[in-house]
């Protein structure tokens, strides 16, 4: 019991529901740290049960929380120069995203987050690729075909520009209300990674998925720097290895799931349409070039990301 009292508590907060791959990978994270027996006890809090979504970063910075699963949106709020990763069509696919964050750009990003925000990124995981999901089937070839579509999106300036890129009218709405809103027609569609669409059973109230793949989203295993600095080298090694393992497990699970969901949705009678993304990419270039957000971005970063193979 005395040994247990000396254990360091590591609480990790996450917005994903317990059934999601990210939350499940946190259980693995917990278990690997426990089996390393280095005097650290991890506890996972999925579904924002400890801190609300979007409030974890200040909690980390104030020493009220040890770890969270942080998104690029949360980083850009404090480091607008790195807001590029919230841009539609910045990553071609999962592999491209992986290569960017595993390469020199990722190293610079982690250094900036560490130096300026006081948060260490231990591992980068895959949150999914966002796709457009429509209540009524439409023939979608270009963003113009989505004109006037009331699309549920999170609130915020980044999402407004993203909505413009897709050609839709963004409507901010809480996730629990999305099902009813789709059913009744308050909204015409929503956009999310397929695993979220599937978990929320939105296939029951929609007819079509258009594979716009507009945002390939990374998510970070982030730890408060003051807490991190207090750990022994042995503890750091165990925690960081556990994070990398968990991230890998999340990625493998989610990639497999995304592929399977496409077939499952088709079996449920939805039409899942792969489309030519060129018109969407062109509009993205245009709408971001004219946007205030892009003025804050690090110069030359876009080019470097695009050139990453």
């Amino acid at each position: 019991n005395q040994a247990a009292a000396a254990d360091i508590a590591l609480r990790i907060s996450c917005a994903a529901p317990p059934s999601d791959f990210l939350a499940r990978s946190l259980e693995t994270f917990k278990a690997s740290i426990a089996s390393a027996k280095v005097g650290v006890v991890a506890e996972a809090y999925p579904a924002s049960s400890l801190f609300r979504q979007g409030t974890e970063v200040p909690a980390l910075q104030r020493g009220n929380l040890e770890m969270s699963t942080m998104t690029t949106f949360e980083v850009a709020q404090q480091l607008p120069e790195w807001g590029l990763f919230n841009r539609a069509y910045i990553f071609r696919d999962y592999t491209h995203m992986r290569h960017v964050f595993d390469g020199p750009i990722g190293a610079e990003y982690r250094k900036a987050v560490s130096d300026k925000m006081g948060i260490e990124i231990l591992a980068t995981a895959y949150l999914g690729t966002r796709q457009v999901n429509l209540r009524q089937k439409r023939d979608v070839k270009t963003p113009a075909d989505l004109a006037g579509v009331k699309m549920r999106m999170p609130a915020g300036p980044e999402w407004l520009v993203l909505g413009r890129t897709l050609g839709v009218s963004p409507v901010p709405l809480g996730m629990p209300e999305v099902y009813l809103a789709l059913k009744t027609g308050t909204i015409d569609g929503q956009e999310n990674p397929l695993s979220i669409l599937n978990a929320a059973k939105l296939y029951e109230v929609t007819q079509q998925v258009v594979l716009t793949s507009h945002l390939v989203q990374p998510v970070f295993f982030a730890i408060a720097k003051p807490f991190w600095d207090k750990l022994s080298p042995e503890q750091k090694k165990a925690v960081s290895e556990a994070a990398v393992t968990a991230a890998r497990e999340n990625d493998e699970g989610r990639l497999k799931d995304e592929a399977e969901i496409v077939n499952a949705l088709k079996a449920k009678g939805l039409s899942v349409d792969a489309i030519d993304l060129a018109p969407f990419r062109t509009l993205a270039d245009k709408s971001y070039a004219g946007s205030d957000l892009a003025k804050d971005w690090n110069a030359g970063l876009l080019k470097r990301v695009v050139e990453t193979q």
């Binding site: 979007g54 200040p58 104030r62 709020q77 404090q78 999170p154 609130a155 915020g156 300036p157 901010p172």
Partner: peptide
Amino acid sequence: DYILFLWRERTPVML
């Protein structure tokens, strides 16, 4: 102290 600490965070739309 906590309230003042939040100068670094902004509301999503109106900022």
